[in-house]
């Protein structure tokens, strides 16, 4: 906490709300954009351009009855969405949105991140895995076979793709020689190149694996509507369901932020201020994710596993070996 306790608390508060706004915006953006991809308009009734649609949805969800299914483990059932949402939000505590900035009108300098531990990347992965506990516990505790299948799928998917994801990221870490996210941004400035260029294979692997990590189409097997009703959140409704959705979208935003930092130089960019660059880069990844969603069908489950273990993992390993050879040669 370089800014002291009070400023950090204020920053956290602002950031959490900012992330929530981003989540609301993202749901709107996704629905509008998917609409346009399908040559329709999407929500356009509530507010200008339908921008207030997320608020209307929130109002609807709050009114929903909150019930606990018979035979479920009530405590775990209630706590599961909280785990997911909490860990998804926590990721943002280490995501830097810029370097140092001066508050306008004063000389007060603040850092545009909450914390910058030197193991930030590890923390992100730990939290990413932690949010799957929410899915696992939620699916298991709601005493429904669909939920259980969904959560089992979620976990096996996590195990399969987390490995490739980590290996893809380690390539970046090798080049930057640090696990700190601000350190990685600095390293890209030092090397004079965004790591998407030298680490392009890693970037592609990261994109695929992170799509699986946040269980988005085409890897949304944990909640495949066609076969599992809604997967692990089948038995959830109202705000608890919204928390799961919230967690998923925030994880998506977090992974977009991470991708921007790891491969596109984070808040580094000419002319515009750092945070704006960060948002633009995140926006690119969010757009990409929606584009993928509106293009690709869901993969079959065995293919998901095949892609994970037989394609991505060997590729990530080769990428890692080549990177390490080059880094060792340069050193």
């Amino acid at each position: 906490m370089p800014d002291g306790f009070i400023v950090t608390a204020i920053k956290s508060f602002v950031l959490v709300n900012l992330v929530m706004v981003m989540f609301a915006f993202m749901t709107w953006f996704e629905r509008r954009l998917i609409g346009r991809f399908q040559v329709r308009l999407g929500p356009n009734r509530v507010g200008p351009f339908g921008l207030l649609q997320p608020i209307a949805d929130l109002g609807k969800l709050i009114q929903k009855e909150s019930l606990i299914p018979v035979g479920s483990s009530a405590f775990l059932y209630l706590v599961a969405p909280v785990i997911s949402l909490f860990s998804a939000l926590m990721v943002f505590s280490v995501v830097p949105f810029g370097g140092q900035a001066t508050i306008p009108g004063t000389d007060y300098q603040i850092y545009l991140w909450i914390a910058d531990p030197n193991v930030a990347l590890l923390l992100v992965f730990a939290l990413g895995s932690f949010s799957f506990y929410g899915f696992l516990v939620g699916g298991w505790s709601s005493s429904s076979k669909y939920s259980l299948y969904g959560s089992m799928r979620a976990v096996s998917q996590l195990v399969s793709y987390e490995v490739s994801l980590a290996l893809a990221v380690i390539g970046v870490v090798m080049m930057s020689q640090t696990l700190s996210l601000t350190g990685i941004v600095d390293a890209q400035q030092r090397d004079g190149v965004w790591y998407i260029v030298p680490q392009f294979a890693g970037f592609v692997i990261y994109l695929l694996a992170s799509t699986a990590e946040v269980s988005r189409i085409p890897f949304d097997l944990p909640e495949a509507e066609g076969e599992l009703v809604a997967g692990y959140h089948t038995e959830y409704g109202g705000m608890r369901w919204a928390m799961f959705q919230n967690a998923e979208y925030i994880a998506l935003i977090a992974f977009s932020a991470l991708a921007s930092i790891l491969f596109l130089g984070g808040y580094d960019g000419p002319v515009l201020p750092g945070p704006l660059w960060m948002l633009i880069k995140m926006f690119i990844f969010l757009f990409l994710s929606i584009w993928v969603r509106s293009t690709l069908p869901r993969v079959r489950y065995d293919r998901l596993m095949t892609i994970g273990w037989k394609v991505l993992l060997p590729l990530a390993t080769v990428n890692l070996l080549v990177t390490s050879a080059i880094v060792a040669y340069r050193a």
Binding site: G35, R36, F37, V39, R40, L41, W291, T295
Partner: peptide, 9 residues
């Protein structure tokens, strides 16, 4: 899909 994005809804 990208081309569809620019069609008139």
């Amino acid at each position: 899909t990208f081309r569809h994005l620019f069609r008139k809804p």
